[in-house]
Design a binder for these strands. Structure first.
Lengths: 176, 176
DNA sequence: TCGATTTATATCGGGCCTATATAGGCTAGG
DNA sequence: CCTAGCCTATATAGGCCCGATATAAATCGA
């Protein structure tokens, strides 16, 4: 989803600063389907303000950068929901790990084993994070999204443990 | 993975045109972890040629645009493998569908049901495609990547069928 | 006490995608 | 038989987004 919609979506739940919007998707168990960087959030909020879809309240703090608290306007809420009524873009998944595994026959067996170990460890961390999140009070949609992530990471880890041997067993012609 | 590496990777398996590189990831069962558009492939191949990592052979066809067939050079092969030996970037997954589900409480129930139906249908198509691909002769790494995709899509579909009720049951305050 | 982390905004360069342009051949349906 | 749409094939421009960097002070931990 584009960063504009991400910002509007967060703001439907209450006012927030750019910094806070970023943190919602940072280490919070949502990264498996949406995220946005500062470099895109701040320009997006500026443009949304120009267009009247959000409003700003500047809290000039003593000796700190001005805290700009954004709120969604009625026009912004309409635009956000209108966006969700149009055809959604397709999912996009990028996995440098799986791409690398495509060429496991060209890599030293030790490298393949390391990459698999590392990927499993990362998956376990994300699973633990999702489980922590599941204990919090969540909206139905949030519970659903977290639950789906949990299911998929669990299935992924099981597959990795079951099938890693198929790419780690080096064929004779490949050098170790 | 960056487009440069994707191009080099394909070319380790044999020469190809930009058009053919694109097609490898188009409807071929690999889209769930890697893809690249023409708009990035052609510039990437030009730069790789300048850098000596690939070489071109121009086949001037009668009344057709020149077919530029690219081959990887020894330097290109080294650079590609060196890239796979460095720390890999993390996976990045974007799902406008799951993002929209986060706001299922703000949407009409009919819209939520439509989106879920559509997403399930798409998932079934991808699963069928992966199963067709599994019947082909594949390298171990390819079989592994396709198998993992199959496992995850299967788990995803099961979750969707089991839990869709949790977001489709509208709470009283939400309008239909 | 001093360094690291956190809060907080902003910009620049670069990478990648979408849409568009060009152009002729093939194929299926009317 | 014609023609519309798709396939092959390369290329560019505009725009979106990310990563890195800059700035600046407060707070927390060793």
């Amino acid at each position: 989803m584009d960063v504009r919609s991400i910002c509007l979506g967060i703001l439907t739940r209450g006012e927030a600063t750019g910094y806070e919007i970023r943190k919602v998707f940072e280490g919070s168990g949502f990264q498996h389907f949406a995220e946005a960087s500062f470099g895109s959030i701040y320009p997006a909020l500026s443009r949304l303000t120009e267009e009247g879809l959000v409003s700003v309240r500047e809290e000039a703090q003593k000796k700190r950068p001005d805290r700009k608290v954004y709120s969604i306007t009625p026009a912004g809420r309409s635009a956000f929901l209108a966006g969700l009524m149009k055809t959604l873009p397709e999912d996009r998944h990028r996995s440098p790990f799986l791409f690398a595994m495509l060429f496991s026959d060209l890599l030293p067996g030790s490298r393949v084993r390391f990459l698999v170990d590392d990927y499993i460890a990362q998956g376990e961390q994300k699973l633990a994070q999702l489980e922590r999140k599941q204990k919090e009070t969540l909206l139905p949609g949030e519970r659903f999204a977290i639950g789906l992530g949990h299911t998929m990471y669990t299935a992924m880890l099981e597959f990795l443990r079951m099938h890693r041997g198929e790419i780690e067993e080096q064929l004779p012609q490949a050098a170790e």
